[in-house]
Amino acid sequence: MRDADASHPMVPFLRRRRLLQGALAATVAPALVLPAHAAAAWPQKAVRLVVGFPPGSSPDALARTVADPLAQALGQAVIVENKVGAAGTIGVNAVARATDGHTIGLTGNGPLTTAKALNPATPYDVARDLRPISLVGASPFVLTGSLGMPATDLPGLLAHARAQGDRLSYGSVGPGSGSHLAMELLKTLTGIQAVHVPFPGFPQVATALMGKQIDLSFMIPSIAAPQARSGRLRLYGVSTAAPFAAFAEVPPIQGALGAGKAFDIASWNAIFGPAAMPAPAAQRLSDEIARILKTPDVRQRLFDQGWQALGTAPEALSRQIAQDTAMWGDVIKRTGARSE
C-alpha cells in the first residue's frame, strides 16, 4: 500500500469546498487560557474517549485503533466508552456536557454536520458546545448494486434507472444517514427515482442487496468491497471526485454526471472535546493524533478498515464541519429529510 499524504487523491476533498471561509471563527470554540505549566501537565488522569456507536462499528474500531498509541503518548490510560443511541448524538452530547477536563469523543460526520438540521431537538450546538481537535479518517461511499441490475457500468445504470421510473429501490442505514442523503443528492442531480428502504446497519443492507430485495445503496467500502470481489455485488462508482486508492478500478460518480454537476462527498470520523477544554490541551491532542496517524502500522490498520488516515489541525476540522453542514443542510432542505 502507498501511504496517503498531501498528494493522495482522497486529500483534495478536504480542500475543495471553501463555502464558508468566515465560519471558522464561529465554529471553533473560544479558547480558555491556561498557564504554560498547567497545559504541560495535562492530562492528570485517564482520558475517556466516548464513541456514540456500538462495539464493532467503524467509529468504535477507529477509536480502539488510536486509543493505545495515544495512551502511550499521553502517559495516561485512554478508555473507550460506548454511549450508543440517537444516531450517535447521545455520545456527542455526553462529551458536550462533560466537565471533568478529561473527556473527548470520536464520531462520524453526521452528528457534527447534519444532526441539528435533521432534528432541531438535538440537545447540543456544535459551534457553541464542542471544540474540534482532529480529523481521523475519511472514506468515500461506494454506489453498490445487486446482481439483479442489468447495467454493468455507471452510465448504463443511470440510463436504466431513468427508464425504470420509481420501480427501483435503494437501502440506507436510516433516514438522514450519509447513505440516505448521498442517494437523495444523486437523485436530484440525475433525475432518477428510487424508493428509500431503511435498515439498521450496512450488514443488513448488504444482505438485502445480495438477496435482490433492493436494487442499490451507497455503502461503506469495508462492507461493499468484500462482497463485490466475491462476485455477489456490483460497484458502480465512488462518491469522491477523485479516485480512491483502495478501489482504483471504480470510477468517480462525478465523471458520469456532466459539466456543472458536482458530486464530491465522503464519510469521515473526527475527535473532538467539550468547548470548555483548554486550547493547549486540544492542541496537544491534535499534535499527538497527527503523529500517530502518520505511523505505518496505524495507517495500514485504518486502510484495512477502509479508511484513509488523516490527522489535521483543529482549524481544518472546523472548516470541514462548516463546509459539510452547509452542503448537507441544502440537501436536507430540498428533500425534506428528517431523522427518526
Rank of each mutant, 00 (worst) to 15 (best):
D3N: 06
A4V: 07
A6N: 08
S7E: 14
H8I: 02
P9H: 05
R18E: 14
L19S: 06
A29F: 11
P30K: 11
V33C: 06
H37T: 13
A38H: 10
P43D: 15
K45G: 14
V47Y: 11
P54I: 02
D60A: 12
L62Y: 03
T65Y: 07
T65K: 03
A71N: 09
V80M: 10
N82I: 05
A87K: 07
G91Q: 07
V92Y: 03
H102P: 10
G108K: 08
N109M: 12
N109G: 12
G110P: 00
K116G: 01
P120V: 06
A121Y: 00
T122Y: 08
D125F: 05
D125M: 06
A161M: 12
D166S: 15
R167N: 06
S169R: 14
S172L: 05
L181G: 08
I192L: 15
V195Y: 06
H196G: 01
H196D: 05
G201R: 13
A206W: 07
G211C: 09
G211S: 15
Q213N: 06
M219T: 01
M219A: 07
P221C: 04
P226C: 09
A228L: 06
A246W: 02
V250C: 09
Q254K: 02
A259C: 03
K261N: 04
A266F: 12
A270G: 01
A275Q: 09
A276L: 12
P278H: 10
A282G: 10
L285H: 06
D287H: 15
D297I: 10
V298A: 02
Q300M: 13
D304I: 02
G311H: 05
S318P: 04
S318V: 04
W328S: 02
W328F: 15
E340V: 08
E340M: 06
